[in-house]
Amino acid sequence: MLRSMYAGISGMKAFQTKLDVVGNNIANVNTFGFKKGRVTFQDLMSQTIQGAQAPQVDAGGNPVIGGKNPMQVGLGVNSASIDTIHTGGNTQTTNRTLDFALEGDGMFVLAKNNTADSTINVQDDDLNFTRAGNFYLDSEGHIVNANGYYLVGIPEGGTGNGLLQIPEDAQSFSIASDGSVNYVDAGGNPQVAGQIQIAKFSNPEGLQKAGSNLYKLTDNAGAYDTNNDGVMELLSPGDAGSATIRAGALEMSNVDLSEEFTEMITAQRGFQANTRIITTSDEILQELVNLKR
């Protein structure tokens, strides 16, 4: 069989993957905190027909014949990586108290714990991370996301990470840029419920998407760890160059429709060109079969 046919098949597979990623980007153009994907390609191994040769000289050191470059035929293309591009999205003002936008590096931390007095162990607990800042209050006053996962912070008077709760009799509450959760109690006195904590990663592209705008920690994410003990440390907004919180706003998707449509067109043309390679190779094979007639 012709090598070009297999090269065309590999090209079709690669461009199909690219179209899948572009389609997912376009589908999430209005998803809060969504980070677009990107596909990169790399060539497959090449078949060496003739290796490189050094220049040849005679006994007197005079050149006899010059060197030759290697002769190789490529065998197609492969998807090298599917990257998650963690650039910031546009900020949309909503004026809703529980809408938070992160300005800078970092992510909100979410936990599944369902007891208000529990302490969150950042090493052992099943934590999730997100840039989507649309939060809500449950029936007990805890700050949760759309899936009911609890926003992690340092409760007032607590010694570690835990759940943030606003008393049911609070007249009003607000969130400061440093993550402080403030409220006015029933007597009209200002109080502090705690402080939101965020996670920072040296390589956010190493996080694994878990669906529902959530990410999971992996060994390649490079979680913030000043003690070098392998335990991720959470930060208060603004600390160590981490993001600050802007209340009453949401970070939108970083998908650029014009860019995605351009990528879709190039992927479509690349896919069509590879199908033409297969068609041409098939016609050549047909000619070979017909030689016997």
Results as ranks from 00 to 15, higher is better:
2 L>E: 03
4 S>L: 06
5 M>I: 15
8 G>V: 09
12 M>T: 09
13 K>P: 03
16 Q>M: 03
16 Q>V: 01
17 T>C: 01
18 K>M: 07
19 L>Y: 07
22 V>H: 04
28 N>R: 06
28 N>K: 07
34 F>A: 01
36 K>Y: 03
40 T>C: 03
42 Q>G: 05
44 L>V: 14
46 S>W: 12
48 T>D: 13
48 T>G: 11
49 I>D: 05
50 Q>F: 09
56 Q>M: 15
56 Q>L: 14
57 V>F: 15
58 D>N: 15
60 G>V: 02
62 N>L: 13
63 P>K: 07
64 V>D: 04
65 I>M: 13
65 I>A: 14
70 P>W: 13
74 G>H: 02
74 G>W: 06
77 V>K: 10
78 N>D: 13
79 S>Y: 10
80 A>F: 14
81 S>I: 07
83 D>W: 11
86 H>F: 15
86 H>E: 08
88 G>M: 08
89 G>V: 02
91 T>D: 00
94 T>H: 03
94 T>G: 05
97 T>K: 13
104 G>Q: 03
108 F>I: 08
111 A>Q: 05
111 A>R: 01
113 N>K: 14
115 T>K: 12
116 A>I: 12
119 T>N: 12
120 I>C: 02
120 I>N: 02
123 Q>F: 10
127 L>M: 08
128 N>M: 07
132 A>W: 07
132 A>V: 04
136 Y>Q: 13
137 L>S: 09
140 E>Y: 08
141 G>K: 00
141 G>W: 00
144 V>L: 03
145 N>L: 03
148 G>E: 03
149 Y>M: 12
152 V>M: 02
157 G>H: 07
158 G>A: 10
162 G>V: 02
163 L>N: 00
164 L>T: 06
165 Q>Y: 01
166 I>K: 00
168 E>K: 14
169 D>V: 09
169 D>A: 13
171 Q>V: 13
171 Q>T: 13
172 S>M: 07
178 D>N: 14
181 V>F: 00
182 N>H: 05
183 Y>L: 00
183 Y>R: 00
185 D>R: 12
185 D>Y: 12
187 G>R: 14
187 G>Y: 15
188 G>S: 05
190 P>T: 01
191 Q>T: 04
197 Q>E: 12
197 Q>A: 10
197 Q>L: 06
197 Q>K: 13
201 F>H: 01
202 S>V: 01
205 E>I: 07
206 G>L: 01
206 G>D: 02
207 L>A: 05
210 A>S: 12
211 G>D: 05
214 L>R: 12
216 K>L: 05
216 K>N: 08
216 K>C: 00
217 L>Q: 10
218 T>P: 15
218 T>G: 09
218 T>L: 08
219 D>S: 12
219 D>C: 04
225 D>Q: 07
225 D>R: 02
226 T>I: 10
228 N>W: 01
229 D>S: 12
233 E>Q: 14
242 S>H: 06
246 R>Y: 10
247 A>I: 06
247 A>D: 05
248 G>T: 11
249 A>T: 11
250 L>Q: 03
252 M>N: 15
260 E>I: 06
261 F>G: 04
265 I>P: 05
270 G>T: 00
270 G>C: 01
271 F>W: 09
271 F>C: 11
272 Q>I: 04
274 N>F: 01
276 R>I: 04
276 R>W: 06
278 I>Y: 02
279 T>I: 08
281 S>G: 15
286 Q>I: 01
287 E>S: 14
287 E>D: 15
